[in-house]
Each structure stands twice: as C-alpha cells, then as structure tokens.
Design a protein around this nucleic acid. Structure first.
Lengths: 256, 256
DNA sequence: AAGTGGTCTAGACCACGTT
DNA sequence: ACGTGGTCTAGACCACTTT
C-alpha cells in the first residue's frame, strides 16, 4: 500500500516517508510528545522493509525532530523550558550574588553547580590570546557545570591570570560570596565592560556527554572577556544546551 | 581483524568504530577535508558488514563531523569562512550604508542580496507581540536572503508598522541608500537602541533548503527589535547558517 | 572498468516496557 | 507474552567519479 509513495521517483523512498512524517510534525498534527506510527505500521502502510522504515525515522532524528524510546516507540521531541540571559545580567550583579545566581533567581527555577576543576593550569590557545598571555602560561582555571531542575544545561570554564587572582580565594574551591568578580572588586578593581562572542555548533563528544544532549542538539558557545582597569582580567568559555537558552542583548544606537 | 573492537561490549560495534574515527578527527589526525577510510576498508579492517560500516559513518554525519561525496568517499567537513557581526554594527552605521553592507565591507568579502518578498502582509504572532500589534494587523514585510561569496548564509525578514513606513519607500522593492533605517531617520525618527534575542536550533525544512545547509548544520536565530522615539519600529527576524557567523557583543559593567 | 557511495530487501537475535 | 525499538548479517542493483 505505497500510499502516495513513488518508488521510481528521484527522491528515495525513505526520504518520501520522512517528508510525510515531517509535514505532519511541522503542521502540528503530531504535537510535541506525540507518538509516531511504529516501525511495523510504516512497513505495512508503505510496503517497505524494516531497514527502510527505520531510515525514514533516522532522517527525522538527524533533523532534531523525533527521538526513539527503546521498547516504547518513536516520539516527537518536546521543547524543554528556556533560561533567558538578560542584557543587564552583569549590570544588575551585586549584593553578593554571582551572575548565574541572579539569572536563575530571576527565572525562578531550581539550580545547582558541579565544580569539575579548580586549580592552576596552563592556559589554552584561545583564552591566552584574549588575555594577552603566551600559550602555556599558568592561570587559575575554574571549570564547572550548571544544572537547572536537575538537568545539566551549561559548562563554563574561566581563565584568570595569576596576578589577578593573587591574594584572593579566586584559585580556591569556594571563592566566597558574589563569586570571583566580587573578589576582584574587593581588591579595588573596577569593571569597565564585558565582551561576548557567540557561535553555535554541534557539540563534541565530551560536551554531549556532560550535558546529556540528545542527538542533533546544537550548543551555543559563548566566550566572555571581562575587562577591568583597562585590561582583560578573565575569559569565561561557556557551552550551553542551545534548547535551554535565549540570550538577550541591547545594542546602543550611538557610540557613547 | 576486529582491531580493538569488542563485539560483546555494551557499546554497539558501529558506535565503537565511530568513536575511533571521531577520535582521529578531533585529534587532528584526520584534518578538515581529509578522506576517511572507504566503506570497504572499514568492512575488512573490522570484519563487519557494509550496513554496520555505513552506520558508523552516519553517526559522524549526525554529529556534523563528516560528509559523503557520492562516488568519491567520506570526508572530514571543512569549516567555512566566518562572518563577524560587531557589537558596534549599528552605532557605526551611517554614510548611506545599510548594516549588512558595513559588515561585509569590513570583512572584505563579496556579497549579494536576493529579495524574496516585499509588500504588505498580516503580521505573525511573535513580531506582533514585539511591535505591540494584534496578530494579523497589516505591516510591511521585507524578506530577503543574503549570500557571501555566492553561498547563502542568512535569511532575514523585517516587519515594519504601516505608520512607520508611511510616506517612505520602505514598502517598495528598493528603499533607497542606507536601507530602511535611513528612511526612518529621514522622517526625523531618532533611534534609541536595538534589542536582540539569540537562540540556536536545527533548521526547519524550508530554512535548510534556502540556506543549502548540510546535514547536522544548526542555525543561529536572531530577533532584533529596533526602538526609536520610545517605541518599537521594526522587528527583524534573522536565521543564519551558524557555521558562518560569530556574533560579537559588548555589555556595560554598570547601568548608565 | 574499477572503485566509491546510495538505496533496498529478507531475515535473525537481542533488549526494553507494558500488560 | 507481546510489541516496541536496537543491532547485525548477506546480498543485490543503481549512480557517481576517476582512471
């Protein structure tokens, strides 16, 4: 019963089947969370082998539209809740609270932090350039993973020059209230601005594992350079589950 | 010759093969553009069937690491050149040049614009909210596609309230030098700021087609609201090939 | 002509979830 | 026990690229 499927078409049969399922998803007929027809149903409905039926589903997996649940079926992916990063997230910092904390309290969601590494280590290529250091110079490295409602959503690695961290607990496990920026201000440093570069890409294997990403889940990659007293004092490299974030920015209409 | 592959492992054979290839790619041993072993080679090297060999390659396709070329082989994906969007891209606007033009001239690359649609049409849900309109109210819609060095890299759709466009060529095919913002300034409107929201996701079918995206290529989705004279005067919805862009922002350290 | 990937089939066994 | 997806095999024919 190859309903509307043309085996002689240039378009492969599995793609034609995928196209039909995709249309039903994008039209909302198959809503997020809805179960798709089973492999057996597709086999008999279109008169194809199991391999061909599965290939149709796999196209939709690669497109990020569906996921299989072993022993249960194929389902339209649900959109997870989103965390908004405000344009004023640093300007509003203060009262002893770190930027991430302010964000999460604003969005009223439970959160947690895994500290993956804190210590002195050689600085990699990219942050070295941004900090004006030589590759391999020693810096304080702080690597952590943020979770919202129990789900990992963000990996962040900060690089801080040793002279900036000197005389503070920035290189220790617990940097104290308000985070490392507060410690820098304690030393009398004055923050001028933050520069951020945003890209998006597919995760590497480690990122996919640590963030427990589903197949075909892109990440937002944000590299922030904090500038105080006329020099870069920290680079923070952040990899976020793209489905969990909206970044918000305000741009001035005129140079001030 | 199942070199280092354990058929009894929990990890499927095709995943183990994919893991090994991925490691060689991420280590740089297989550089961008390099050819991977052929399916036949993988079959004999690991003693697996062709289906299993192909499945290993397909894992890497889904991860965005490799692409097949029919009749030639499997290759590590190349990174395309990148376009940087500066934090000052609106502040530096002027001299009769549109923002995109300024960007492209800065990066010294050839570019072109396809105008896909210009006219009056009902405003969709999201821009309606941002513009303070009712869904379905008429607005000027300008939809275009940008190309760099012949490759499509960006789709942009602008929504402009009718009263803003009134008395200007904003609703016409060619809005004149400097683009629509210049025409608004001609009317005496003063721009205050631009707000941008950035997300990343997989493209839908239309976006993938218009941007000629390879499999497993995420897009950056940027929605900009231009604010002038204390009100939103334009919403620009932009979908970019994520591999072709770096967005750059500057955030103030203090509310000014 | 030879080598490469693209598509498709039929059949098998295993693992997970639900009934 | 049954239905669902997960993995794997062997074999076939086609289309594209290179020699």
């Amino acid at each position: 019963m190859a309903q509307g499927i043309d085996p002689a078409s240039d378009r492969a049969v599995y793609r034609q089947i995928a196209d039909r399922l995709r249309r039903r998803i994008e039209a909302g007929e198959l809503a997020p969370g809805a179960q798709l027809p089973s492999e057996s149903q597709v086999m008999s409905e279109y008169g194809v082998s199991r391999v061909t039926a599965r290939r149709a589903f796999n196209v939709l997996v690669t497109d990020g539209l569906v996921l299989a649940e072993h022993g249960r079926g194929w389902f339209v992916r649900r959109k997870p809740p989103v965390k908004r990063l405000g344009a004023d997230r640093f300007a509003r910092r203060g009262e002893g609270k770190a930027a991430f904390t302010v964000d999460m309290e604003t969005s009223n969601r439970s959160f947690a932090v895994d500290v993956l590494f804190v210590g002195v280590a050689p600085v990699p290529n990219d942050p070295a350039i941004r900090l004006g250091l030589e590759v391999g110079d020693k810096v304080v490295v702080r690597r952590r993973r943020y979770l919202a409602e129990g789900q990992p959503i963000e990996l962040a690695t900060s690089y801080i020059p040793l002279d900036v961290a000197e005389g503070t607990p920035i290189g220790e496990f617990n940097p104290g209230p308000g985070g490392i920026y507060a410690r820098m201000e304690d030393k009398g440093m004055v923050f001028e601005r933050y520069e951020e570069e945003v890209t998006a890409r597919m995760p590497n294997e480690e990122e996919a594992r640590l963030l427990q990403l589903a197949p075909a889940s892109p990440v937002l990659h944000l590299v922030r350079t904090a500038i105080a007293d006329g020099r870069p004092v920290e680079v923070c490299d952040t990899v976020m589950d793209a489905s969990a974030f909206v970044l918000h920015y305000a741009l001035p209409a005129h140079l001030s």
